[in-house]
Design a protein around this nucleic acid. Structure first.
Lengths: 331, 331
DNA sequence: CGCGGGGAGTAAAACGTTCTATTACTGGGG
DNA sequence: CCCCAGTAATAGAACGTTTTACTCCCCGCG
């Protein structure tokens, strides 16, 4: 295994000079620099990141902890994170908490051991204490798709109340007067906030927000959506259905069409997230688009700015507005 | 920042003993071990992974390089990898090559710098040389969804020829005599092999394999599938369509239904991958299921076995068979 | 002619572990 | 009574970088 010493010997300089070529090329005279660079490629030297981290006190690695890597939403976030990180020469360590606090804890521990420069996390619970421990170890934390726990912290979120409001306002504008809300577990912050938005929209139109029919599914999948639709059909269809998530909406759509209910003529339907398949389903699905990829990009930019420019860095709480995408299901 | 020395001082032992408690708890007397463990949790010590890697010569980290993190196929593979790795205390560094050799190279370089224990990769090209360089640095490589480049190497793949054959055999068994193959770029190995399988199935039924109509799309997306379907309609519909991928198939399906073509009555349709949305689309899609999650799990198990038991490890070339899932689109 | 200063490079310490050799101690067998 | 085997713990070197303080040399200025 070839080390910086071998390179130094081969180029006839000291190890310190090689290190300078690697990290501060301006500091070394062009002639020697070339000699060193030649030696590097000749010997196939590749820097030992751990040694570098150990001595320098920090690594060029960040952690990304998500709730469900199987969800297209997080996949797109991850793509944004990965792009920015790799542009700036950072590596990304991926952690999938799969909704379990235990797994999230284990992942955070691994990240702490690796002395990552910072962590991007969509917390699966509402307990800020575990993140405090990271900060005590000098690891910056940026929250993704979650409002900030504290002022001296960056966070990038999407306005779920506003999204819920816009979605239901759209349905009401199309003439619907009775609306059902098909949601995932109400232990999930996003589901609750979208419901609040939905109620606000009804209030704004002069309807009683208590009239919003809420159907809570155990999971946010297409199958759960089908079951919810069966409930709706059995107990009398509303004029519009708003789903907390596109997967639920696709399930609802399928069950309705099978039962001979026309969408949007009999029932208007809205999803949330605007995943790729929303546009591709047979009756294309209206949805609330979130800037998922941007969410990942910006969170990473904030994190790396916080790490690389600690003195000039200003903590930011960024709140995106979701965007309504009207398609066939609400024509 | 609390180090192993602080723990040692606090527990009244030497740093070496603390290291033993951490790595070989059996080697140290129960009484001292407890004392050390108490000190560890009291001081909130967390081991410095880089220092450990530097001295020990190897890390508890593996790399995962995929072609497209946005593709549900790779997402599921990643979930399998992540689960096994985290069970065994390994961290996973994620690299997304996005189909670009350059990006893949950059990612591999980062992995080499981190002195990862091993790398799981779905290579985006057919150039084994770049992987050789990793092996020269003592990094094990396991190929995922790709046959092995060489005998002394593990690889986990799925039989794409067999999958193509089974898919088209199924269509032919349903009575179809003319078949079209809608594929992604034929520079992609999987697309070519599935086509070969399709031809083999025709041959086996006594049809001329040259009769397989091949439509090559530039990308493997639903939109590309819609375009392909337009082509088919314009030039006369076959009795069956086999798509290289479910996204293409969903696009084809949507375009056909819109044009008033009934599926499966007028045209039978098969996809490939069996992504979640295949079952959820309005006419549920028949598809070839691949053991994606297992692919990730087993590849990781092989890799870690190769790393942890180099003397007993036997290199394996595992080839899974995809499984036909018949749904409405081929009833 | 001497002195200061700047550019280019070096020597050596340090980072936090792990590991090898070594020591201290205990008990049992010859 | 001595020695040896075995267990428990320690001291200190080593891993490959980065960084600090330092040397050396040359140039220009007073």
């Amino acid at each position: 295994m070839v080390s910086i010493k071998d390179v130094a010997a081969h180029a006839g300089v000291s190890p310190g000079t090689v290190s300078n070529v690697l990290n501060r090329p301006g500091k070394v005279a062009p002639a020697t620099r070339e000699r060193v660079e030649a030696a590097i490629s000749e010997l196939g030297f590749v820097r030992h990141g751990s040694a570098s981290t150990l001595r320098a006190g920090h690594s060029r690695t960040i952690g990304l902890s998500v709730i469900d890597i199987g969800n297209p939403f997080f996949t797109e976030v991850a793509a944004g994170v990965e792009d920015v990180a790799s542009e700036l020469g950072y590596a990304v360590i991926l952690g999938n908490s799969a909704g379990s606090q235990d797994k999230e804890d284990r992942n955070l521990r691994v990240l702490a051991e690796h002395r990552v420069r910072g962590v991007l996390i969509t917390p699966s619970g509402e307990d800020p204490a575990r993140l405090e421990r990271l900060r005590e170890h000098g690891i910056s934390v940026v929250l993704v798709d979650h409002p900030a726990h504290r002022p001296d912290q960056c966070a990038v979120a999407v306005d779920d109340v506003g999204g819920g409001r816009a979605a239901v306002a759209h349905l009401l504008a199309k003439g619907a007067r009775s609306v059902a809300y098909v949601t995932g577990p109400l232990s999930i912050r996003q589901c609750v906030e979208r419901r609040e938005g939905a109620r606000a929209a009804m209030r704004a139109t002069g309807l009683d927000p208590a009239g919003l029919r809420v159907i809570e599914a155990m999971t946010m999948t297409a199958r759960a959506g089908e079951k919810a639709a069966a409930d709706l059909i059995a107990s009398g269809l509303p004029e519009a259905v708003f789903c907390a998530n596109d997967l639920l909406a696709l399930g609802v759509l399928r069950a309705l069409l099978r039962a001979g209910v026309r969408v949007p003529e009999d029932v208007a339907l809205m999803g949330y997230d605007d995943i790729d398949f929303a546009a591709a389903s047979t009756v294309s699905l209206s949805s609330m688009r979130q800037p998922t990829y941007q969410l990942g990009r910006i969170a990473t930019e904030l994190l790396l700015d916080e790490c690389d420019n600690p003195e000039t860095h200003a903590h930011q709480h960024i709140m995106f507005q979701p965007e309504l995408v009207a398609r066939e299901s609400t024509q």
